[in-house]
């Protein structure tokens, strides 16, 4: 490394600083983000009052409010993994800065990793907001338990980042419209058990759910938050999430690089 040159951490820090400045420059957007979290949490607390310790939730402590809150927490990290790169690529293309980023000497994986930093931090703040508002409304979720769930949550995001990267490649070429994120989000929300236990689904679907990474994230987080189990007892979930990441991410990176190449050949890299 030559004198005065920046290690990877310096470049990651620069991307994070840029994103923080831009995010902070839209204060109304931040307010609406947390307003939406508040409304959603309040809505869930009222819905939970309709559902009084059903047998379906016995395994999870019987309380729907905590069950659904844990589902939203995991879905926040699913959205993080799925949506960050697509949003970033779209924003850079619209702003006209996509090309200048790609011609910088910063390696593509470093750039992609840097793009995740601020959204990850914001997602953690989202989760704290869910918990804080939940507490005010009577939810019983331990902050220490949540902290212990962090590796599971980050692995869940990582497992979905492959789909996110592939969809970002799609957006590089099409500029608008991303069917991958839409389909994966709908399937995950519907099937993985975020807002209702999967054993309420028809039999064949219950088996199919196990190929959705979010199912493993939800099971691990609920085991730790609602059944007070340790992180180490969730080895199977952690392994499955890691396996999804390791298996799918290289393929997704190849798809993204291919999309960049097609855009370079057709001359459509910088178009919005």
């Amino acid at each position: 490394m030559r004198k005065g040159s920046s290690p990877i951490t310096g470049r990651l820090g620069a991307v994070a600083r840029r994103d923080l400045i831009v995010t902070w420059s839209y204060p109304i957007l931040l307010l609406t983000r947390y307003g939406q979290i508040a409304v959603t949490t309040v809505l869930l607390s009222f819905m939970a009052r309709l559902v009084n310790a059903p047998p379906a939730l016995a395994r999870y402590g019987g309380r729907y409010f905590e069950f659904a809150l844990s589902g939203l927490i995991v879905l926040s990290f699913v959205t993080l993994g799925l949506g960050v790169l697509t949003t970033a690529v779209t924003a850079e293309q619209n702003a006209g800065s996509f090309e200048v980023l790609l011609i910088s000497p910063t390696p593509l994986p470093v750039l992609l990793a840097g793009i995740y930093l601020v959204p990850t931090a914001l997602t953690m703040v989202d989760v704290l907001a869910y918990i804080a508002i939940g507490w005010l409304l009577g939810a019983h979720i331990s902050l220490l338990g949540l902290a212990a769930c962090l590796p599971v949550l980050l692995l869940t995001a990582a497992a979905f980042s492959a789909a996110g990267l592939a969809s970002a490649g799609f957006v590089v070429l099409t500029k608008r419209g991303d069917p991958i994120t839409l389909v994966v989000t709908q399937v995950t929300t519907l099937l993985a058990g975020a807002l209702f236990p999967i054993h309420l689904l028809p039999g064949p679907l219950q088996a199919a759910v196990r190929i959705v990474p979010a199912y493993w994230g939800l099971e691990a987080v609920r085991a730790m938050l609602l059944q007070h189990r340790s992180l180490w007892s969730q080895g199977r979930s952690l392994l499955v999430l890691a396996a999804f990441t390791v298996a799918l991410f290289p393929l997704a990176l190849a798809v993204f690089r291919r999309a960049l190449r097609v855009a370079r050949v057709t001359g459509t890299l910088g178009n919005a």
Binding site: G13, A14, L101, S104, T106
Partner: peptide
Amino acid sequence: RLTGRQNLEFFAAMAGLSR
């Protein structure tokens, strides 16, 4: 949304310069 200086510091980091 960044100032001129913030832009230059960002792109300098992307070009590999230390902070």
